[in-house]
């Protein structure tokens, strides 16, 4: 397996964004609905919601789910 520059970029960025107290994918799923509504309110994010945002910086699968949820809940 030889990695592309985009793949290496993804690993480097995920490493840079790594935090000691991250939430895992199951906890992310439990919080993401509240996160997406908090974002649509444009209110400042509390630490629980900030952890949801941090998670998608290190997890491409959950990032794809967030993008899909945004499409599903878009108004109009």
């Amino acid at each position: 397996m030889k990695y592309t520059i985009d793949q290496l970029r993804g690993l480097a960025r995920a490493t840079a964004e790594t935090r000691p107290d991250e939430i895992d994918c199951d906890e992310w799923l439990a919080r993401v609905a509240a996160y997406i509504e908090a974002r649509s309110d444009e209110a400042p994010l509390d630490p629980e919601m900030a952890a949801v945002e941090q998670h998608v910086k290190v997890c491409p699968d959950c990032r794809a789910e967030l993008e899909a949820l945004m499409r599903a809940t878009e108004e109009g």
């Binding site: 993401v32 609905a33 509240a34 997406i36 509504e37 699968d61 789910e65 899909a68």
Partner: peptide, 18 residues
């Protein structure tokens, strides 16, 4: 109960499908 029930449910369905 910290979001609309439907948003929560759709998030679960997206996890299932993806």
């Amino acid at each position: 109960g910290d979001s609309k029930f439907t948003t929560w449910a759709i998030a679960i369905s997206i996890r299932v499908a993806l």
